[in-house]
Design a protein around this nucleic acid. Sequence first.
DNA 1: CGCCCGATTATGCATAGACATAATGTCGCG
DNA 2: CGCGACATTATGTCTATGCATAATCGGGCG
Lengths: 241, 241
Amino acid sequence: MADATEGETAQLPLHQRIRAEIEGKILSGEWPPGYRIPFEHELTAHYGCARMTVNKVIAALAGAGLIERRRRAGSFVAQPRLQSAVLEIPDIQQEVAGRGETYGYELIGRRRRPAGEDDPAVFTGQEVLELRCLHRANGRPLALEERLISLASVPEAAEVDFAATPPGSWLLHHVPWTEAEHRISALAASTKVAAILEVAKGAACLSLERRTWRATETVTAVRQIFRGDLYHLVARFSPQG
Amino acid sequence: MADATEGETAQLPLHQRIRAEIEGKILSGEWPPGYRIPFEHELTAHYGCARMTVNKVIAALAGAGLIERRRRAGSFVAQPRLQSAVLEIPDIQQEVAGRGETYGYELIGRRRRPAGEDDPAVFTGQEVLELRCLHRANGRPLALEERLISLASVPEAAEVDFAATPPGSWLLHHVPWTEAEHRISALAASTKVAAILEVAKGAACLSLERRTWRATETVTAVRQIFRGDLYHLVARFSPQG
DNA sequence: CGCCCGATTATGCATAGACATAATGTCGCG
DNA sequence: CGCGACATTATGTCTATGCATAATCGGGCG
């Protein structure tokens, strides 16, 4: 195979090496929160490089939230953030396929109608596309999806054949968005939901509600109800971001 | 002194203005995914600044994932990422207080024991502190917490009076961590859990399991079971980071 | 003794130039 | 006509330097 990486230091660009070393000291705890890291001119001397080089590194670390900078005082290791995690919510289709199971999709209902009183207030006055569909894994019902798409924001959606394409996948690839909000909760299956998901009435389900904006207009609102016995969300986090 | 900033536009640093303008074009859709943004030398000419200045901006945007750079070819607006959200999981105590309700805490059980077969495999051979406690909001049971703390990693925990301090708060402030994993699921209350949370057996609950590492050693593993009718998680996301 | 004012100093921002690297396109040769 | 060598070009990295800004420290004055 290719070159064995040089014993001492890699042929990494210098700024990556500097960044890695500083990150290492912080993450290992050698430089605890509140610790004043060496001044730029000290790092400059230590690495034998120009101040701009270490400056860019520290600025990047500050941008990532690992370091806080105070003029004249120095740069300090930031306090660990409040608990926050990066929650990956992949396409159901991809996720099922990724687990090696066969994905099934079924469009249950499709209506084009003006938004009514039961809909989220952001849609009032607009025309929406209402979709209900079912996701299956290995043939078993996995999740019921109820979705509203704003036709004012996404007129193209009216033409799409959602009997063949899950709306989540389509939207993900066709509509840019700038913000989203998720609401995750547990609920008991209603009679209707229980029938569709093929579980007992009252069975625990995981509900994922998502609302997606583009700039200030709501693009879509979706509620996915997963069978609690077949699904869970996983979120991973490491503080370096 | 009040130097007359020439235009009306900026007392912003130039690089922030450049960044804001580019981000704006991307987020507004004016520069769609795949669009080749102007070359550095064009931006240099447009803003009348040095190349390093626009270079730093574009490098930062690339670091944030908004832009992909290809040598010789140019810089391109990145495809929208897979769905991912920043999930804030605050201290239960803080969150209850933040909603204006009164927080209550109760230690149900505390045992110091060697890890057994029912515990996560990472603890085997270690001594652990096992805690069970109940969080209340306005007097009503909100969440049952079952926690294991590795005494090998956190020997100080043996001395703490967890009858007064919720273990989550204490750990958050005393033990740095480098990585965490969450598992979010819905489950039906068992007889025991139902009795503690004062709900019917089988009621839908939201389960949040978290395992926290420091470097490679597991610090703590916790499972919080929330009453589904009283609690949900909220996650917000905007792609610019 | 306390408070304000200036000198010091670390970071913040920007410049102009240099060389390295990698991908693209083109030209010329077989 | 196909293909490899080479020139072109945009980004990647780094340097050396300058001035701006803000916080801190120390000293002098009321």
